[in-house]
Deep mutational scan, measured.
Amino acid sequence: AVCQVIGMYDYTAQNDDELAFNKGQIINVLNKEDPDWWKGEVNGQVGLFPSNYVKLTT
């Protein structure tokens, strides 16, 4: 993983390639090539999510 982030809001996947997560959930970021849509993993599920829905862990 590149880094870990925390969901600031609940996110519901809109497409099959997206990653759903809940507020407060830890997401392992796998790829930040696109500044707006990062690739991440939660509980074995991998997908894209909007980078503005998360904050970096300290």
Rank of each mutant, 00 (worst) to 15 (best):
S51Q: 07
G24W: 06
W37L: 09
M8Y: 07
N31M: 10
G44L: 01
D36H: 13
V46P: 07
I6K: 10
L30I: 14
S51I: 03
I27H: 03
I6S: 05
N43F: 02
V2Y: 10
W38S: 03
K23G: 04
F21L: 04
D10F: 00
K23Y: 05
L19W: 02
F49P: 02
Q4V: 07
E18D: 10
L30C: 01
V2I: 14
N43P: 04
W37H: 01
G24S: 06
Y53G: 05
W37R: 07
D34W: 01
N43A: 10
D36T: 12
K55C: 12
E41Y: 01
G47M: 00
N15V: 05
Y9R: 15
P50W: 04
G7W: 03
D36I: 12
Q45P: 03
V54L: 01
T58W: 07
K55N: 07
D34A: 08
E41D: 00
G7Y: 00
A13T: 09
Q14V: 10
V42S: 13
M8H: 11
E41C: 03
N22A: 15
Q4W: 08
G47S: 02
T57K: 13
T57M: 13
V2F: 10
E18M: 04
Y11Q: 04
D34E: 08
Q4H: 08
N22Y: 08
A20R: 10
V29A: 03
L19G: 04
Q14G: 11
D17F: 09
Y11E: 02
K23Q: 13
P50F: 07
G40V: 01
V42H: 10
D10Y: 02
V29P: 01
Q45F: 08
N22C: 15
S51R: 13
G47D: 02
G24H: 03
L56K: 13
L30A: 01
F21Q: 00
V42L: 14
V29L: 09
G7F: 04
N43V: 03
G24P: 02
L56C: 15
L30M: 08
V42R: 10
V54I: 03
G44I: 02
L19S: 02
K32I: 00
C3N: 10
S51K: 12
D16A: 10
L30P: 00
I26D: 02
G44A: 06
Y11D: 00
T58E: 15
